[in-house]
């Protein structure tokens, strides 16, 4: 989205730039945090630790990109964690039975993800039920399917092809494969939102549904499409989840929807719809994954982790809100002159 131009003063220039762009704020926060944490725990910046963190961040980023598109249209998808769990388990079971080669099992998983997203989108747009209600329902239904498939048994690492789990930390030219996948998806979806008619319609529907309707934009079709894409990306995240953990339980990925939505919000996608970028959502996922890891390597008391994690999210979002409000004030003054 093009941003409003303004000319803040000398000191205001840095904070001004940060306030205008949530992405820059996040990059600054990430750098700052890495610097501080590595002072207290040098192993934080070690290659093997960072590979672990970024692989996890990549999974959350991909699911977060789908969630971000949904949130941009003023909807929410709570079922994404069940999609991840179901796809991860399904791919694991398929590989255990050895019916399909690995790439085909992955495609199957991604296809199932797409299908689940289409189910969400269809129920929401055909019956015109709020997405929070529909996906609360499918959150349980999709999870229920995992329990049926699992029949009380988990998929073990030993059931899978040799070396399967190593894919999570494999690198190409020193860059982890998971990170490459996430960056490619950020690029594709970013381009879709920024450079295509469809992308413009996503923002328009989320920002002002009435105006969009008068312009002849078919907002229900747009909504159906974003839920389908969110399902597809949830499927990809599910495949990667299976690779990362190797051992998959029927309850795998339970509760991660909160982290995914947090990544989207921290990434600057307004819950009120109409604004935000997928780069922001991906950076939000990276930021949260880093915090999670930093709290571990700093060896803070285990029982404090959850509370600190939440506090950091609130501080980050509040700081950004303050900065951008001050910027808006400045822009208004400029306009009044």
């Amino acid at each position: 989205m093009p941003k409003t131009q303004g000319q803040p003063g000398m000191l205001g220039r840095v904070t001004g730039a940060l306030g205008r762009s949530r992405e820059l704020t996040l990059v600054a926060l990430i750098v700052l945090m890495c610097a501080i944490v590595s002072l207290g725990a040098p192993q934080f910046l070690s290659i093997s630790n960072l590979d672990q963190v970024t692989a996890m961040a990549a999974i959350f980023a991909i699911a977060g990109i789908g969630e971000a598109m949904v949130v941009m249209t003023k909807n929410i998808d709570l079922s994404v964690e069940s999609t991840i769990g179901l796809v991860a388990f399904l791919v694991g079971v398929t590989l255990r039975q050895g019916d399909l080669p690995v790439p085909a099992a992955w495609l199957l998983g991604i296809g199932v993800g797409l299908l689940l997203g289409m189910v969400n989108g269809a129920v929401i747009t055909v019956f015109r039920i709020p997405s929070i209600v529909v996906t609360l329902g499918t959150l349980s239904i999709f999870r229920g399917l995992v329990f049926i498939i699992a029949g009380g048994k988990e998929v073990n690492l030993s059931d899978l092809p040799a070396g399967y789990a190593n894919l999570a930390t494999d690198t190409v030219l020193g860059v982890p494969v998971f990170v490459i996948v996430a960056v490619v998806i950020v690029a594709i979806v970013g381009l879709l939102l920024w450079k295509t008619r469809f992308g413009r319609q996503v923002y328009a529907v989320g920002s002002n549904a009435e105006a969009a309707a008068i312009l002849g934009i078919r907002s229900r079709l747009v909504t159906f499409a974003v839920f389908s894409i969110a399902g597809l990306l949830g499927g990809i995240a599910g495949v990667m989840w299976g690779i990362y953990f190797g051992t998959i339980y029927a309850t795998s990925a339970s509760g991660v929807v909160l982290q995914i939505v947090a990544a989207v919000v921290v990434g600057g996608v307004s819950i009120a719809g109409g604004t935000g970028t997928v780069v922001g959502a991906a950076l939000g996922a990276l930021f949260l994954a880093l915090i999670n890891n930093a709290l571990l390597v700093l060896q803070l008391p285990q029982e404090l982790l959850q509370a600190i994690y939440g506090a950091v999210i609130l501080v980050a979002v509040s700081a950004d809100a303050l900065l951008s409000r001050r910027n808006k004030g400045q822009a208004a003054q400029e306009a009044a002159r």
């Binding site: 989205m1 413009r200 923002y203 920002s207 009435e210 312009l215």
Partner: peptide, 16 residues
């Protein structure tokens, strides 16, 4: 309510 997408730039509104 009906006319503009306030989050959009002038150009993006006109071409919508």
């Amino acid at each position: 309510q009906d006319g503009l997408v306030l989050d959009f730039s002038i150009a993006n509104n006109i071409t919508l």
